[in-house]
């Protein structure tokens, strides 16, 4: 299965993987993070249930320093 994360192509095993698991694999902390899937923001409460599908475009952002 192939997905893109922040415009980079990721090859994944064809095992169902949730957004929470994706964050863990990428070592991204959950606090201060938001995820959009195919240009739709996914509420934090759904990260545990939402499984990735082939072709998904995932955007992961984090809060950072700024004015």
């Amino acid at each position: 299965m192939q997905i893109t994360v922040n415009n980079q192509i990721h090859e994944l095993d064809d095992i169902a993987i949730t957004l929470t698991q994706l964050l863990n694999q990428m070592n991204v902390p959950e606090a201060g993070t938001a995820i959009a899937r195919n240009q739709n923001v996914v509420p934090r409460s759904q990260w545990d249930e939402s499984t990735l599908e082939n072709g998904d475009q995932i955007l992961i952002i984090r809060a950072t320093a700024g004015g």
Partner: peptide, 27 residues
């Protein structure tokens, strides 16, 4: 204030959120 950035997998996480939350300020 805080800004947003895309997570860069190669980037070491420069986390400023935790220290700000420790200060008890609104974001």
């Amino acid at each position: 204030t805080m800004a947003l950035k895309r997570v860069d997998t190669a980037d070491q996480d420069d986390d400023i959120l935790a220290p700000l939350q420790e200060c008890g300020v609104n974001l």
